[in-house]
């Protein structure tokens, strides 16, 4: 039973189609507490769609998804409450353009009654310190670089004190010199024991940080295992082809 308790996310046989395009086929996956799961695979393999299902931004056609013991596909489940505990970071940052950096971070905790304004602002300043942007609190989000925006977006997600963080290609829209700063913040977050599910093309980062790497291809999990198993002794033929392409690119 103590093993069971550690499951943070339980996914069983989810399917998703867009018209004739069957993007996810019978995917099952469990994510344990404190685990960092990195999902890799070619574009269009379904990994982002899968990630977006974990907080119901996408709805599966069939299957079971439990997060923190809540069946999120049950219409009776208050999805807004569940989402408060799942932070999400997007490829295109999606910072709120009508607010300052500080307001971006404090909006949700204050609006949703998690903290008073003063508490939220204090927390926001701490988080900005953590992501290395202590002096940006009162600037407009449009004045930030891509790397800075993504670090603010991470701080915004953390402000809700989530116990799971989802990252959807967080560095794909960044200039190469910005990537390092963002990955550094994510590494530090992983060290704190945060449960993380990450979709990325950064293989070096996956090797360093992941407890488990999952390879998606054609809407299926073709192989999963420790970074060593995946990167040094891949069994699946498609994984081998994929790795030979990305590692020598």
């Amino acid at each position: 039973m103590s093993e069971e308790k550690k499951v943070k996310v339980h996914v069983d046989k989810v399917n998703k189609s867009y018209g004739d395009n069957h993007v996810l086929r019978d995917i099952s996956l469990d994510v344990m507490d404190n685990e960092v799961v990195v999902m890799i695979g070619p574009s269009g393999s379904g990994k982002s769609t899968f990630l977006r299902m974990l907080n119901l931004l996408e709805k599966p056609d069939s299957g079971v998804i439990d997060v923190d013991g809540h069946d999120i596909l049950d219409p009776k489940t208050n999805i807004n409450k569940v989402r408060e505990n799942i932070g999400m970071v997007f490829q295109n940052f999606n910072l709120f353009n009508n607010y300052t950096v500080l307001e971006n971070i404090t909006l949700a905790p204050v609006q949703l009654g998690k903290m008073t304004k003063a508490e939220a602002e204090e927390k926001a300043k701490e988080l900005l310190e953590t992501v290395g942007l202590p002096d940006k609190a009162n600037v407009s989000v449009n004045s930030l670089s891509g790397g800075q925006k993504q670090r603010v977006a991470i701080a915004r997600a953390l402000a809700m004190n989530p116990d799971i963080m989802l990252f959807d290609e967080p560095t794909s829209a960044l200039d190469p010199e910005m990537v390092g700063d963002v990955l550094e913040v994510m590494k530090r977050l992983a060290k704190t024991g945060m449960t993380m599910v990450i979709v990325t093309h950064e293989m070096g980062f996956a090797k360093q940080v992941a407890n488990r790497v999952v390879f998606f291809e054609s809407g299926k999990i073709q192989e999963s295992g420790t970074p060593e198993q995946i990167f040094t002794a891949p069994k699946n033929e498609r994984l081998q082809t994929f790795l030979s392409k990305v590692m020598h690119a």
């Binding site: 807004n80 989402r83 910072l95 709120f96 909006l107 949700a108 609006q111 949703l112």
Partner: peptide, 24 residues
């Protein structure tokens, strides 16, 4: 993406409209 970000933080659709979408 603005709506998705607001919803992912736990805001309801109407709150996201009021606080994020309508002002923009």
């Amino acid at each position: 993406g603005q709506m998705e970000a607001a919803r992912s933080l736990g805001m309801s659709h109407s709150r996201a409209m009021r606080k994020v979408i309508i002002p923009q």
